[in-house]
Computed example of a mutant assay.
Amino acid sequence: MDGTAFDKVLIGQFFNVLHETQKGIDKHPDFSYSKNNHHLLSERGKYAQNVFKYYARVSEVQEDLDRVLIFLRRFPLKKFYEENNVDLISYTKYHIEVFFHKINTLLDLLKLMVNQVYELGLTDRKCTWDKLCKHTNVKDSPSLKIIEYFHKSFEHIIEARNLNTHRGIYKDPESDEIKIPMMIYRESEKFNMEIGEDLHMAMPKFVLDYRLKKFKKEKLKYIANANDVVTQYVNLFMNVTLPIVIQTAGKK
């Protein structure tokens, strides 16, 4: 089987471990439906649940990345949005920024999951790449190698996210070229004003409309391709990491 394909058998084995460790917990005298019962689990159960927590978060972030593509496919309530200063460019910018942040979140979650799977004992704040690489029982692991490749593949996005988060910078030359003439055309229609001949010559309305469609199409393609790569990396990561989970849980 292709290593980047979703291994249903492996996932099934992982969920079997989870289910087995849950059996009978509701019969424990301290069990409560209104409280967290994690402390009642066996060591094996606690380990499996702790790993699952990060598995679930990774899956949720993947769904968020897919949602970005769904949102970008449509520009709903156009009239309402534009009346509130949200045009196609700013709408796209907002969702691209979300995408950048979610890629970075996914990278962090993969590192945190390694920390949990291999029981390294690092706090979330101290679970850095450098510290993971110093642990002898994980530094040469396939899990860490995949995270390294993930980082290299999405390094441009991670850098864009850092600029956006810490400097408020969003770089997109194409949108910069489009948004000014688009704003002028929109405001001229709104206030029934004449457009200057210079703008008509520089970017006729039909050219602007074409560039907006091209802009949207290219962004959709970019996100779709990135999501495909994300899925391959996550599947590969789980395929090499969950066997460690099943093996470790079996020893507890």
Results as ranks from 00 to 15, higher is better:
135 H>D: 07
105 T>L: 14
115 N>E: 03
92 T>F: 05
67 R>G: 03
102 K>Q: 14
125 R>V: 01
85 N>R: 06
124 D>Q: 06
140 D>Q: 14
145 K>E: 09
70 I>P: 01
112 L>I: 11
132 L>Q: 13
102 K>G: 03
93 K>H: 09
72 L>Y: 08
103 I>Y: 02
133 C>L: 09
113 M>S: 06
82 E>P: 00
109 L>F: 15
80 F>Q: 05
75 F>M: 02
120 L>Q: 06
122 L>W: 06
145 K>S: 07
77 L>G: 06
130 D>N: 13
102 K>C: 03
114 V>H: 04
75 F>D: 01
97 E>G: 06
116 Q>H: 04
118 Y>Q: 04
98 V>I: 10
93 K>P: 02
105 T>Q: 11
109 L>V: 05
99 F>N: 05
92 T>Y: 01
146 I>P: 12
66 D>I: 03
74 R>P: 09
145 K>A: 13
100 F>C: 09
125 R>C: 01
66 D>N: 10
106 L>T: 07
68 V>W: 02
108 D>L: 11
119 E>I: 10
109 L>T: 05
143 S>Q: 07
78 K>D: 08
96 I>D: 00
105 T>E: 10
103 I>H: 05
133 C>F: 08
86 V>D: 06
80 F>I: 14
70 I>E: 07
140 D>G: 11
91 Y>C: 11
125 R>H: 04
135 H>Q: 13
86 V>T: 13
108 D>Y: 11
124 D>I: 08
114 V>A: 13
126 K>M: 13
138 V>E: 11
90 S>W: 01
141 S>H: 12
80 F>Y: 10
120 L>T: 07
85 N>G: 04
144 L>F: 06
89 I>G: 00
119 E>C: 09
135 H>Y: 03
87 D>V: 15
